[in-house]
Amino acid sequence: MQPESTLTKAEPSSGPLTKLPAEDDRALEKGLDNLQQEARVQSSWKSSITKALLPVAALVAVIYLWQMYVWIVRPRPDQLPGPADVFGTLGSLWQNGDAVETVLTSLQRGVVGFIIAVLIATPLGLVLAQSRVLRGAFGPLISGLQVLPSVAWVPAAVIWFGLSDATVYFVVLMGAIPSITNGLIAGVDHVPDQHRRVGHVLGASRWQLAIRIILPAALPSYVAGLKQGWAFSWRSLMAAEIIATGGTLGFGLGALLDQGRQFSSMATVISAILLILFIGIVVELLIFGPLERRLLRRRGLLVGGSQ
């Protein structure tokens, strides 16, 4: 105990010995507040443009290498067509409406399947996260299903549901539900115990604790599960569409891919792959990427560099 520090110490009932005027204290406090807060780093226009341009530059480089390869090695066009051929095929697919039709058919199935998966997986995850018995019983099964490639369900689904939309949706659900369920369970598991204690001290009921504290705390992990669930939906959908074609099934991207193979049209195959890739990137860039970043940034969990 240094003497100088005890001198400035205020004694509650008799008042402080050496007390600064109140305004000085407030200025001191304000100064500390301003000094100790993290300086906000505004990402500049320049850096965000650079960030957007980098993948475009990479794309241009890939197409350039592809073209050089075609010019120099001269592969058979039915083995590897050049970029111009592929873009020509894409253009004609666009003009005759096939591109739009297949993309819309697949996207609609993917979205509907994904939404159904969310509606099933969310309550399932909540129940499993709350009940230790059910968790012990079904947890390993769900984790196992997450590893099982959902394309393995296609033969079974064809036998059960024939060549109908039900087959496609079944495979999509089997792909997406385990990921979403596991994401939610992991999120609830990792809610810090301190959050629950605070909730208890604040007088939250069981229901309020679940809705106002546990769920928001588990949200980042849930969204990560949704993102993975969408990726699995999309993959499963393509697998189902390639294998199960015809019947009452509409004409999706997977079917376009299979048609390209049957007609030995490599340009169509590559076009279909590019469309599938394009949809995946667009959904990630426009929906899940921003959603996840926003969520993490609001909680201060996003490191500066990855903004």
Partner: peptide, 8 residues
Amino acid sequence: RPHELSGG
């Protein structure tokens, strides 16, 4: 938000 505030 809390992460934008100092400990005090």
